[in-house]
Amino acid sequence: MNKVKLSPSTVIGAVVSVILALSISAVPIGVGPDALTWPNLTICIVFFWLIQCPSALPTLAVAFIGLAHDLIGGGVLGAGMLALLIPSLAARTASDALSRTVYGAQVIAFIAFAAAVLLIEWSLTGLPRWTTPATGPVLAQFFVTVVAYVPLSLLMRKLFGTGRR
């Protein structure tokens, strides 16, 4: 079994990593239109825990993380929450199978997960104003997030002693 076992230290690790991801995502490295494209670390961390230890991140916790992401980021409240919640159901269902597969397959699953999250959030952001938000910054964030997931997930696997086959 490659999964992380649920223990107090795992729960603390999940909580701390989520708080760090939410905070680092809000660090102002450039602002507004001139902001440096910054990875959505919340997506990376949530996916990692959903695959490696879904019990450490129950559904209500994922919803709360999405809400916190909206509140800190300043977007349409609930858009990020639903965007994170819906694909997380699929990831949770496939977590057993994904945790047993090779690392490359996990990365491919993450690409699909990140694309679904950002696509849903993009749609829900534009829906209230019946407009299409700019796609360029979202695509850039998608690519940066996928690139960031690889070192981040390897670091997390090292820290929590998981993924060794």
Partner: peptide, 8 residues
Amino acid sequence: AASGGGFA
């Protein structure tokens, strides 16, 4: 703090 994403 700033919103780092492309949505807000």
